[in-house]
Structure formats: structure tokens, C-alpha cells
């Protein structure tokens, strides 16, 4: 340890603490949160406006370009934010050997769900 590098060699080897990009996760959680404020309010308002609508009306709404774009943006920001948020929860409470497998599982799950949601939205938008 010295003044320039106030971390122990073991801490560095284990990848603990910041490696100059430690702020990135914290920052992206805020950026995605900021994006989700208008996107989720838009989505909630749209859902309320479509109560009682049938399948045809709902599909026609989802096919409008602006709605398709906003839905893809919502899914992207939502699952990015979800992955980061759940990661923090796991890091804080899970200290067993399950920690790393759970973190990897959350990443895989969030990416898979985001891709599935975006694919479904685009299929509705471009489908016949």
C-alpha cells in the first residue's frame, strides 16, 4: 500500500473496490432511472387509456412508429436498470458461493427478457 494506490494487493487481485470505472455502474443506474421517469409514466398512462380496448385496437396502437420506438426504449432502459438494481441487492445480501452464479444469472435473464420483449414488439410492428 502506498499513497498513490491505497488498496492492498489482495484487494486488487480479488477485483474489490474501484478500478477507476467503479462509478460507471452507479452512474448508469441513475441515467437509466432518469430515462425511465418519462418512459414508465407514458406507458402507465397508455395502459390506462387502453382499458377496455380489444386486441385489434391494442395491436394498431403498438404498431404506430412512435409507440414502437418508445416501447423498445422502455424495454432497454427497464432491463438495464433492473439488471443494475438486482445486482446491488445480490451484492449486499448474498455472501455465499451463490453470489457469482446469481449475478451471472441476473445478467443473462435481463438480457434475454429485453431481447424477447423487443423482438415481440418489432414482430407486432413489422408483422403482416
Amino acid at each position: 500500500m502506498n499513497r498513490k494506490r491505497p488498496r492492498s494487493p489482495l484487494g486488487r487481485a480479488l477485483g474489490l473496490g474501484s478500478a477507476k470505472d467503479g462509478i460507471q455502474q452507479w452512474w448508469l443506474e441513475r441515467v437509466t432511472a432518469l430515462a425511465l421517469v418519462p418512459l414508465t409514466i407514458w406507458f402507465a398512462a397508455s395502459l390506462v387509456a387502453h382499458i377496455g380496448s380489444d386486441y385489434v385496437i391494442f395491436i394498431a396502437w403498438l404498431r404506430t412508429p412512435i409507440v414502437t420506438i418508445l416501447m423498445v426504449l422502455l424495454l432497454t432502459a427497464l432491463f438495464y436498470h433492473t439488471a443494475l438494481g438486482l445486482q446491488v441487492v445480490i451484492e449486499d445480501y448474498v455472501h455465499s458461493g451463490m453470489k457469482i452464479p446469481t449475478l451471472i444469472g441476473i445478467r443473462f435473464g435481463c438480457f434475454a427478457l429485453a431481447v424477447a420483449g423487443i423482438f415481440a414488439t418489432l414482430r407486432v410492428a413489422f408483422g403482416g
Binding site: F79, G85, L86, L113, A116, G117, A120, T121
Partner: peptide, 22 residues
């Protein structure tokens, strides 16, 4: 935190709902 975890479950429902629509 708890609501964040709950909403993660809701996000899964959102995807199921979109897949059903597709």
C-alpha cells in the same frame, strides 16, 4: 429496494404480455 425487486417481477409480466400480443 423491495419495490424495485417487485417491479423486476412486473417487468417479466410485461415481456410475457408483449409476447402474447405478438
Amino acid at each position: 429496494r423491495i419495490t424495485g425487486v417487485v417491479l423486476s417481477g412486473c417487468a417479466v409480466v410485461l415481456v410475457v404480455w408483449l409476447i402474447a400480443a405478438a
